[in-house]
Design a protein around this nucleic acid. Sequence first.
DNA 1: GGCGCGCTGGACAAAACGTCCGCGTAGGAC
DNA 2: GTCCTACGCGGACGTTTTGTCCAGCGCGCC
Lengths: 215, 215
Amino acid sequence: MAPATASRTDPRVARWSPACQAVTALFGPSVEVVLHDAGRDRVLAIWNPMTKREAGDPSLLGELDRLPAAVDGVFGPYEKLLSDGRRLSSVSALLPGDDGGPSAVLCINFDRTPLDGAAALLSALAAPVAPRPAALFAEDWRERVHQIVGAYVRARGKQVERLDRNERLALVGELEDAGVFAVRRAVPVVATALKASRSTVYTLLAEHRATEPVR
Amino acid sequence: MAPATASRTDPRVARWSPACQAVTALFGPSVEVVLHDAGRDRVLAIWNPMTKREAGDPSLLGELDRLPAAVDGVFGPYEKLLSDGRRLSSVSALLPGDDGGPSAVLCINFDRTPLDGAAALLSALAAPVAPRPAALFAEDWRERVHQIVGAYVRARGKQVERLDRNERLALVGELEDAGVFAVRRAVPVVATALKASRSTVYTLLAEHRATEPVR
DNA sequence: GGCGCGCTGGACAAAACGTCCGCGTAGGAC
DNA sequence: GTCCTACGCGGACGTTTTGTCCAGCGCGCC
């Protein structure tokens, strides 16, 4: 498994290559390992590249300056965003040369996008998955209004027109509790079903809401 | 973040430490990184130990001989089993010394137990989840919006922000078909759920209605 | 006949709805 | 890099719906 590198002869590549390869081997296609030339700001070698970068390309490591202060020569982990939307967790490490000073920079980028998907799936498990809920909506709410009104009317054996004020109030209450008034253009429909005016429905509704404030 | 090591002065530790630390930093408590002295079969340093091993302990690396042949000095990944049942994926790499010969061995052990749990959970998803009883509509149309959006998003393993235009259009279509937009104040809620503006939702809605006029 | 209650339609203000447009910008072509 | 296109955004705006108010009126009752 050779890295994409034109600098095979560079001693730093020879030195760090096994370590980089080990990481690549363990995490397969999810990680990209990049070895940078600290001095020339170039990519020395790259394993499993996620972008089109290759050895010799500029490193664009200037960003390291702006990152949280290094701990023992290690930056991060910090988040990176690829242009295609993938989300990476990244760390960088300053690798010492023979003189003890930094000679190379190691960057490990971990594509956590699949994990995001899995995490979403997992957290969604907390809430039960509703299959396709029955078509309560569309035109059904009208029917629902008529059902509620019809049931009420039947229960008292009167026609709508004969219902007295309290009964209408109660009926509006039932409709409200069924959520009918959360639907657009519901009031006129209810008014018709109740054989009453829009005004009256609003009055009853206000009265009901004043009585049962919470809902 | 210092490794558990009594060999701070060993030049090999100084050299490889940043790289080991980088790996530890990225994968947090899930990985253990061990640097071995190839010659003396001793642990040189260990980061985030999962067992009680520490620097100076015998390495017990004899097993490497029995592993699949190394590729470019890298062994594995192979599976290890801890006594407490945890399952590790591991790789080992022969790290070259200044003379080019091996001077140290790097082992990275990744605790995949949590992933096994997640995988089991995930595959269990294939089995149908008991549908929950259909709720009366009342206030749950909001929840419905979130369910539909959530299901859609999960199906593609993207988060809402990254859905492209067509996907959003389709999603709005589903919401429309579910009758969501028949509810008062639905558009702002949908906009929020979609992480889009009210305008955008209306645009998509218009587009959808132009495409599927009857419904 | 006079009174009170409640419903009514109409008028009107407020809120929600839906449309439009200019601007910023991300992404692609060159 | 520059240009270009397409898209999403927020704000402005006109329209529709909503909700409130009121004067008038029917009806039962004293």
